[in-house]
């Protein structure tokens, strides 16, 4: 297994012979299990107002070893949590005695779902993230308790649903009733928070490809979430990542699941429209 990964990695090195500009995104190609081709670079959607020409997955900013771990499900530690979620998917819970599988069939039936979230929910009159929708199924259809936002059970299930959408392009709707939430998220993206007065755009739009201390800045895309981080050896949610980035500006941050982060997730997801779903990914 390891040998295969190394061979692929070596082959890729040869392919990228003319090294890309120092520090920028590399030119490697992401194929998972030698089967699922992932679009990791795409023309920027008009929603970006020309702020970026190309959108690029965070995978391109990680080192070769970290990249390789994502190229094979046996090497991707995030897949262990996907396996755990498959069990939960098939287990009845709550007062109704139902499992996810009872309503939805096999997880593969959900292919394409992750790609369009966050999404406006007409009945609820709100934009829902994947985790909000999962919790609505749990409380309303299963009579089970809601999972805590970005906690292990929720993030593992989100990873399962991401895994069956890998290789499908992110295509989040931002118009109609979602527009108001999207605008709110956009405003947050450009707000300079904290004592350091840094916005998401300052780091991920103006400075992607540059190093900030030891960290190689990516575009901060979320097509690859949940992300298994080598740093904390678990799956990390989008909102947890946002929380950390805002905290690092020496700001009073927001909480996972807050309306602010739901709006920011919708906006950031839309910035990645055209990139393929890639989660669970591996990051440092």
């Amino acid at each position: 297994m390891l040998f295969r990964t190394m061979t692929v990695a070596a082959a890729m090195l040869a392919l990228t012979a003319p090294m890309s500009a120092a520090g920028g995104a590399d030119d490697d190609v992401l194929v998972i299990n030698e089967d699922i081709e992932i679009t990791t670079k795409a023309a920027a959607s008009p929603l970006l107002d020309g702020h970026l020409d190309e959108v690029i997955s965070g995978w391109h900013f990680r080192d070769d070893d970290t990249q390789a771990m994502e190229m094979d499900d046996f090497d991707n530690p995030g897949m262990i949590f996907v396996d755990q979620a498959i069990e939960v998917w098939n287990t009845a819970e709550g007062s109704e005695g139902k499992s996810c599988a009872d309503c939805h069939g096999a997880p593969e039936e959900m292919a394409g779902v992750r790609a369009v979230y966050p999404k406006w929910n007409e009945d609820a009159g709100e934009v829902r993230t994947m985790q909000m929708q999962i919790n609505s199924c749990r409380t309303e259809r299963m009579g089970a308790e809601a999972w805590k936002y970005d906690a292990a059970p929720a993030i593992n299930m989100e990873a399962l649903l991401a895994s069956v959408s890998r290789g499908m392009p992110v295509n989040v709707a931002t118009d109609g009733p979602a527009a108001e939430t999207w605008e709110k998220g956009k405003e947050m993206y450009y707000t300079r928070y904290g004592l350091l007065e840094l916005s998401c755009a300052n780091c991920h739009e103006q400075n992607y490809g540059n190093y900030i201390r030891a960290d190689h800045l990516s575009q901060g895309q979320i097509n690859a979430f949940p992300a298994y981080r080598l740093k904390n050896a678990k799956l990390n949610g989008v909102h947890d990542r946002f929380k950390g980035c805002i905290r690092d500006t020496r700001a009073e941050t927001f909480s996972p699941g807050s309306p602010e982060f739901v709006a920011l997730e919708l906006y950031v997801a839309s910035r990645g429209n055209g990139l393929d779903v890639e989660g669970p990914s591996v990051r440092n």
Partner: peptide, 22 residues
Amino acid sequence: VMPSFYKTSGFTRPGDGYTGKA
């Protein structure tokens, strides 16, 4: 992008160091 190092007002959601708290 460079932060202001000797300034105490005019911030949006200033925090208490890197705690994420007010």
